[in-house]
Amino acid sequence: MSKKILEVKNLKKYYPTVKAVDDISFSIEKGTVFTLLGPNGAGKTTTLEIIEGIKKADEGRIVFFGEELKQVSDEAKQKIGVSLQSTNFIPHLKVKEVFELFASFFKKSLPIEEVIGFVSLEEKRNDLVEKLSGGQKQRVAIGCALINDPEMVFLDEPTTGLDPQARRNIWGIIEHLKGQGKTVFLTTHYMEEAQKLSDMVCIMDYGKIIAIDTPSGHIKKLGELNYVEFAADLEQLDIDELNAWDVEEVEIEGDKVIIPTKSLHIVLEKLLSWAKRKELDLNDISIRQPNLEDVFLSLTGRRLRD
């Protein structure tokens, strides 16, 4: 039977000009990867920082490890690991020294070498942190979050700004954590990341939760939609003509045309004969399954990247 490690009820955090967190509730089960997905400014980091004890909520309840808390206690902090959105450390410290410092904050900690090995920084252990690449710094941050062998790890946008290789390295670490049975609370605005890593995805926008489900559950709600995509000279296109077919609303993204449809065969046949008739070149034509980006679009009317 699953066990809830964290429950958030009716959490609110209002600033004078914005409702950063607007009455949200959710719960996280032990050993799962829970992801807050949303665009910049959706309220993900504020939510996370309230739970981590950095910010105070205006209203709401947090039940952490079965205990209701107004704010995260020192005892609870012994059981959690945190990697913040921005990664900075005391300047001029070596990787090993940073881990030693963070280890000193907790009652129990893993051996430093074990953590260094886990985040694959063996060769960098005696390097100054400021000399590391962005991806390596991020691994130091995650290592610090793991130093106390936490039951739950909070990772706030751990891959933002990283190159694809560094991003995949971080994904590997998160999958490893999941394999160890750790609970991971992740925030991201990368739908691919959320889809790949998460057990549950909570979609946030303007401080509100607009949907919570598993990645496949979110996608299923879109029905049997498929997406036909192609690039073409947009000046020769009449979108209304395409919308008259058995499709959802056709979308233009750059020079790309995206046609969501539940009648893939019919639409494909129509598209090809229409292109032939119009003497249009259809470049990079592809058919894909829906993803969380499409879910967000269907829920909010705009793309996550907008």
């Binding site: 950095i54 913040l84 921005s86 900075n88 450390f89 907790f106």
Partner: peptide
């Protein structure tokens, strides 16, 4: 000021120190 600006104090705030 640097520690606050760079979020170093904030990071420490997430630990039991």
């Amino acid at each position: 000021t640097y520690f606050r600006r760079k979020g170093i104090f904030k990071r420490f705030a997430c630990t039991p120190i």
